[in-house]
Design a protein around this nucleic acid. Sequence first.
RNA 1: GGAGAGGUGGCCGAGUGGCCGAAGGCGCUUGCCUGCUAAGCAAGUGUGGGUUUUUGCCCACCGUGGGUUCAAAUCCCACCCUCUCCGCCA
Length: 423
Amino acid sequence: MIDIKLIREKPEFVMENLKKRGGDPEILNEILEIDEKRRQLLTQLNQLRAKRNELSKLVAKLKAQKSEDVQKVLEESKDVSNEIKELESDLKKIEESLNLKLLYIPNILDDSVPVGEDDSKNVEVKRWGEPRKFDFDPRAHWDFAEKDWLDFERASKLSGSRFVVLKNKIARLERALINFMLDLHTKEHGYIEIAPPHLVRRETITWTGQLPKFEEELYNTQPDDLFLIPTAEVPLVALHANEILNESDLPIKYVAYTPCYRREAGSYGKDVRGMIRQHQFDKVELVKFTKPEDSFEELEKLLSDAEEVLKRLGLPYRVVSLCSGDIGFGAAKTYDIEVWLPSYNTYREISSCSNVTDFQARRGNIRYRRKDNKLEYVHTLNGSGLAVGRTLIAIIENYQQKDGTVVIPEALRPYMNGLEVLD
RNA sequence: GGAGAGGUGGCCGAGUGGCCGAAGGCGCUUGCCUGCUAAGCAAGUGUGGGUUUUUGCCCACCGUGGGUUCAAAUCCCACCCUCUCCGCCA
């Protein structure tokens, strides 16, 4: 949620921002119109309420004096009260419609975000590592299904398309990856490990921005109206909703491993082969709460914490800064980390690191008290560190050998009981 | 699922119709005091909104939404949430 005052005071700025994202700026005019109406009504209402308060005091006073004028004042006050009731009901409707519209406005972009319509305008920031040259035809990860590692057929028997069953040593490698990532971020990067709920309330997921706009992307459970989390970002950010944090506690850094559940509505036909795009995937997520003045610096650190995972695994990657048309709804700035995948002969997203500034803090009312006792919204940041399923794919594809076996990256061997090769 | 208790400011907690935006305590800020720290003393300290050039003025907020009343933290109704005990259960 962005500040209504910003829309009121700099409408052309907010409009420009919306255009850069490819949104329709007309909604802003609607908001301004409703806001104007709201303030008029509020002024009128406040005057009436002031009058009622005054008359009520007068009643108390006259009653104490046993004055005969009481009856007249009571009647007048009753009239005022009725008028107030009507205006209050009008105001409520107006505020509901205003709030709903505000929930659909995306965050303000940082100046450094490249302007462009789609992912072709994303800007590469850096590269690390060299894509390996194969002296044989490398297999795509789904070709390893025949080794009885990945079972797509049985998965679809159980759950439909976009699910996979991991078997044997690959299942174990997945578990090793999770532990490796959690250990790295907790022991070396200073994150606190959290094991959050995977089902959350409608309210919770509104705080973080996935609702109301992206409901069709989420799995909803009935009859309790709980949502399966699409990312651990949701419960991690919501941990401090409606709280006032201490300045001295910031930045707060959390890491959590969870499965993520996404309906992937609107991505029909995309990445149908293999396990690149699944309805359920494992992810280790990083979340930070920071002071506003620190958030962009913390984004760079968050990015580097995520990059470190790929460096230790020896997987070549590049970092791109997402352009205005490709960046997410709540983000002010986003870096994607893309890992080299031989099967696609290109880099594919494996992590997304964003500074959400005060967008979620406003929605979830997450503030902190400065030394001068003033309250201020924190900034929230999130990033994958990393998407585990895609990391698994990257390892299989990048570390495969001619005989169909896969070398285990050294950093993972302690988590695999010293095993060096998957066969 | 059954029975009960409860949701008040950053925290704890008092408050059953007007004198309550709310006692008291803790915490925090500032000043004094003190070799240092701690303690002590004094003052200050809720949030949000509208309006205003400023000082200010006004309004709302005691889980949420309705209702009763001239007037609601306080009375009534519904809902949400938390806790305790019992049952069931990994």
